[in-house]
Amino acid sequence: MSGIALSRLAQERKAWRKDHPFGFVAVPTKNPDGTMNLMNWECAIPGKKGTPWEGGLFKLRMLFKDDYPSSPPKCKFEPPLFHPNVYPSGTVCLSILEEDKDWRPAITIKQILLGIQELLNEPNIQDPAQAEAYTIYCQNRVEYEKRVRAQAKKFAPS
């Protein structure tokens, strides 16, 4: 494992614990031996107030490669969400998460999670990743928002 990646992720964890947006979660997972795995984080993004996503808490896994922060983490909703920019596998399609697009090593975990929260309610229809959600979003916004509200209710924190 890269010392650069681990040191950056340790800084990220410290900064997150000191200050993070209300309702968001970002925690490194534990290895079988109980030690912390900084390369694999369990996160959760709350649906934004005043949107059909409100009330939901959407679980996301963030996986970092050894060359982080040169390369972005892979962000994957578990379980996958109904959304035009979420692949059926759950992987998020967002330009700041793509090395050859808008990724920059200075982007923080907090910025990534806030960017994904923004994307939930403002899909990028130029870059669809899920045919069904994309089609319904474009053709029947009322039905799309109904499905999103049902999903938010399903993923409401207990």
Rank of each mutant, 00 (worst) to 15 (best):
E78T: 10
V27A: 08
Q130P: 03
N37M: 11
S95I: 00
N31R: 11
W103D: 01
N121W: 09
I136D: 10
V25H: 09
A129I: 01
L9T: 03
Q151D: 03
R149Q: 11
A15C: 13
P84W: 04
R8W: 04
G55M: 13
A106N: 01
K65Q: 13
N40E: 15
K110W: 04
Y144S: 02
N40A: 15
G90Y: 13
E42S: 11
D19T: 15
I136S: 12
A156W: 09
P128V: 00
Y134L: 05
L57P: 05
S7D: 06
K101C: 14
I112L: 15
I107A: 13
Y137L: 07
P69A: 04
R13K: 04
R8M: 11
W103N: 00
A44W: 09
L114W: 13
G23I: 03
T108Q: 15
S89Q: 15
Q111E: 12
E118M: 10
K49Q: 10
A26R: 03
W103L: 01
S2W: 01
K154S: 14
F24G: 07
E145Q: 11
W53Q: 02
E78L: 10
Q126V: 14
A5H: 15
T51F: 05
P69W: 06
K18L: 04
K14A: 01
N31P: 07
N124R: 03
Y144K: 02
T108P: 11
L9V: 00
V86G: 01
M39G: 09
A150R: 12
I45F: 07
R141F: 11
L97K: 01
N124D: 05
T135M: 09
K49G: 14
Y68H: 07
L114H: 09
K48Y: 01
D102K: 07
S158Q: 12
M62A: 09
G115Y: 05
P79M: 13
G23V: 00
G3R: 07
C93I: 00
A10Y: 00
E78C: 07
A131C: 13
E145V: 13
Q130H: 09
D127Q: 00
D67E: 11
G115D: 00
G56Q: 04
D33G: 03
D102N: 10
P52L: 09
L57V: 08
P46M: 05
V86K: 08
F58W: 04
P46V: 09
P73C: 10
M36V: 08
I125L: 10
A106K: 00
S2R: 04
N40W: 05
M62W: 01
P79E: 14
I107W: 00
F22N: 04
D33E: 10
R17V: 00
G50Y: 14
E118T: 09
L60K: 05
M36A: 03
N121I: 10
C75I: 15
G115S: 01
Y68Q: 02
L81K: 03
G3A: 00
K76T: 15
C138F: 05
K74L: 15
E118K: 11
S158M: 14
L119N: 04
N124E: 02
L119S: 06
E122A: 12
E132N: 08
N124S: 05
T91A: 15
P69Q: 01
N31H: 11
D102H: 14
I45A: 01
N140R: 10
N124C: 12
S70E: 09
P32K: 15
E122Y: 11
R141A: 10
P84I: 14
V92Y: 04
E145W: 07
P21K: 06
K18Q: 09
Q139G: 07
N31A: 08
R61N: 14
P80M: 14
Q126H: 10
P21Y: 04
Y134D: 06
S2M: 04
G23W: 07
T51I: 03
L38D: 00
R61K: 13
P157K: 15
Y68L: 02
D67G: 14
P88L: 13
Y144M: 00
L63E: 15
Q111P: 15
H83V: 03
I107R: 06
Y68E: 02
M36I: 07
Q11I: 14
K101W: 08
E118S: 11
L60T: 09
F64G: 03
R8Q: 06
P88H: 13
P105R: 05
W16T: 04
N40L: 14
L94P: 01
P157H: 13
L38I: 05
Q117Y: 09
P72R: 06
Q117V: 06
L57D: 05
V148K: 01
P28E: 02
P32M: 14
G23Y: 09
P80V: 07
R17G: 02
N140C: 03
D100Q: 11
P80H: 12
D127H: 03
A131V: 11
K154C: 00
W103V: 00
W41P: 03
T91N: 11
E132M: 09
E145T: 13
K18S: 09
S158G: 06
L38M: 06
C138N: 15
Q11V: 13
I109K: 01
K18V: 06
H83N: 00
L114V: 15
N40I: 07
K59L: 10
P21T: 02
Y87R: 01
F82L: 07
S2Q: 15
L114T: 12
A152Q: 05
G56S: 06
N140V: 01
Y137V: 00
Q130R: 11
I107P: 03
R61D: 11
S158V: 11
A152N: 09
C138V: 08
V92A: 10
R147T: 14
T51D: 02
I45Q: 03
L97G: 06
F24V: 05
R104C: 11
K101S: 13
T51Q: 14
C93V: 09
L113S: 11
M62R: 04
Q117T: 12
A15K: 14
G3W: 12
W16N: 01
V148W: 03
P105V: 07
E98Y: 15
S2Y: 12
D67C: 12
N121D: 13
T35F: 00
S71H: 14
A156S: 10
H20Q: 00
C75A: 10
Y134T: 05
L113A: 15
A26Y: 01
F22G: 08
E12W: 05
E98I: 15
A5V: 13
S70F: 09
I136A: 11
Q151I: 09
Y134N: 07
D67P: 10
T91E: 14
R149K: 12
S70K: 07
A106P: 01
I116L: 15
F58M: 07
D100G: 14
A26D: 04
I116S: 11
K146W: 02
F82G: 04
G55W: 09
P79Q: 14
P32D: 14
D102S: 14
P46C: 10
I96V: 13
Q11E: 11
N37K: 14
Y137Q: 06
I116K: 04
M39F: 13
A106M: 00
P88A: 14
S158Y: 01
I136T: 10
V142R: 14
E42G: 11
K146E: 14
E99N: 08
K76D: 15
N85V: 06
M36N: 00
N140G: 03
L6F: 10
I96K: 04
K65V: 07
E118Y: 12
R13L: 05
I136R: 06
G90P: 06
E12P: 02
K154H: 09
